[in-house]
Every structure is written in C-alpha cells, then in structure tokens.
Design a protein around this nucleic acid. Structure first.
Lengths: 147, 147
DNA sequence: ATTCGTTGTAACTATAATGATTACATCGAG
DNA sequence: CTCGATGTAATCATTATAGTTACAACGAAT
C-alpha cells in the first residue's frame, strides 16, 4: 500500500502532551518531545482545531482540550488528521473498460466489500478513548521509571 | 493517510478475469479490461505468483489459478500485492524524545491499539472469498445486461 | 531450427504525498 | 511597544506509484 502518514501518531502524541500540561504546550515544547520541527506540530494542531478538538491561545501560546479525555476517541483523531474520509481508504483503478463485463462492474462490487473492512477498522479506533490511552501511557511510564 | 495503492483492486480484477478464462488471460488482454499498460499487469501477476496464487505459462501466455476460487480470500490478495506486512499498516513518527516520559512510551502504547484496528480490517477481508465476489459480479453483470 | 507472440524485468519519467525547513505577517499579554 | 508564539506560504528532498519503452528469454507451432 503505503502506510498511513505519521500525522496520526504525532496527533495522539500532541494531545497526550496537552492533557498533561496545556499552558506549557507551545509548538516549540511539543516539537521537543516529538523530536521534529515546530511547524509540523502547528500544522497538525491546525487540523485538530478544525475538528474542534482543541483551542489555541494565539500570541501567548498553549493548547487546550475542548473536550474531556474520555470524550475523544482515536477515531476522532484519525478523522481529524488523515486525508481519507469515510469509505475512502482504498483506492480503485480509475477507468476500467466499460465494454468488459468484469471491468464494468468490478469497482462497485469491490467497493462494497472494502467499505465493510474499513468500517471494522474504524470501529476499533472508536472504542479507544484518549483517557484509556493516557492511562496505559502512565502505567508504562511508571514501569520505565522502575526499570 | 494516503490510500492503499490501486494494486489491490487491479489484482482482484486480474483474478476475476483469469477465473473467467485462463488461456485468454494474457497481460495484453487483461490490460484491455483494466485499461492500463500490460507491464502493470505483469508486475502484479508477478506478485500473485510469488504468493502462490497463480501460475503463468511463460512464452505461450495465459494465467492459471493455483487454488479454487473459494480458497482465495481478499486478505490473500491484499497480502500478495500490498507492501504492508501484518501489523505494519500505521506509520509511527521515527524518533520521539526518549527523555520525555510521553515521547519515550507513546509508540508502544499506540502500536498495540493500532494493531487491533488493523487486525479487525484484515479479518473482514479474510471473510470474503473470490468465489463470493465473482458471484456478486455476475449478478451485477446480469442486471447491467437487463438494463 | 526459425518464427512469432508472450513473459519477465530493467530503466526511465512524471506525478503526488510527506516531512522538514525558512521566512514572515499577525496576535496578545505584560 | 516589545517579545515570544501562532498561522501559513514557499521551497526542497525523499519516496511510492503509475505509466512507458526496450529488450532478453521462453515455448509452441510451423
């Protein structure tokens, strides 16, 4: 295929940092944790803003959650930053030969089945909230500190 | 994201044509139905060969199924032509800051959850055989013929 | 054995998405 | 007004994909 971009994992990373300390969460600071350029962070935060997940204090800096952690699912984040809209994960070859009975009908048949597969994936993402994820993260952090 | 390549849909198209008439299935002929270049078809057939799904008569031409239609699932085709191996659909940002407790642990936590989502999608693909798909295709073809 | 259509690949090109970076106008608190 | 931060445009390198040309090797048919 071509995997999903890293935007999704960075977006989750951003939200985790924001949930830990909103006022410290400047693009500069988050970029330090993600280890990338601040502009990358600002672009992804821009997507999260459009999706209504966060607000940003322009000028001053800092990013704030618009919802509680348990009201944000991985699917919300996925939808906010990935280009694929619902039902569009799979690509189809553009112009099959309409004169061929197979070429004429393969797309609609395949599309129906692919939509089921994509929906199954999205339902899994919908079942994980950021609250759960941050909770798993802090368990892991404690383990790391111990070991 | 970046969608899956069209290789998957072309591969299913190819197998559908082959199941309809093996000896007619030269790369040239299939390319006519898919409406692309014969080399594209040969490259994908090459992947299908490596996966053991088909055999090709070099020199003479023609592509032959190695398994029955109901023994080939969409997951088999997906695995044959897409680059992503099991558990690798999602990309992760490469080098988060290990000094940050979030950066140090986010990947493993996220990876676990993403694997569940990917597996759910693959299980859906595993439940559709080419036999079912070709059957849906011929129903559709009859409808189209009727008008 | 030669011919002819086909396969199997390599090589090259164009296009598009991504990630990174620089630059700069604008915002807002102090 | 100043200073740090945001928002965004522009540019660049890298990579995957899709398409195309070219050509050696294969195999059946004559």
């Amino acid at each position: 295929m071509k995997k999903f971009s890293s935007r999704f994992s960075i977006a989750v990373h951003i939200l985790s940092v924001v949930s830990w300390n909103s006022s410290l969460s400047t693009s500069e600071f988050i970029a330090g944790s993600v280890n990338t350029n601040p502009v990358i962070i600002r672009r992804i935060i821009s997507s999260l803003k459009k999706a209504g997940l966060v607000s940003v204090k322009a000028g001053t800096g800092g990013t704030y959650l618009n919802k509680e952690l348990d009201e944000i699912t991985l699917l919300d984040v996925y939808r906010a930053v990935e280009v694929a809209q619902q039902g569009e994960l799979f690509n189809f070859h553009e112009h099959p030969n309409p004169a061929c009975p197979i070429g004429a009908n393969i797309e609609s048949v395949l599309r129906k089945n692919m939509l089921k597969a994509q929906t199954a994936m999205e339902q899994e993402l919908a079942q994980v909230t950021l609250k759960q994820l941050v909770s798993e993260l802090s368990e892991k952090t404690v383990e790391t500190a111990k070991g």
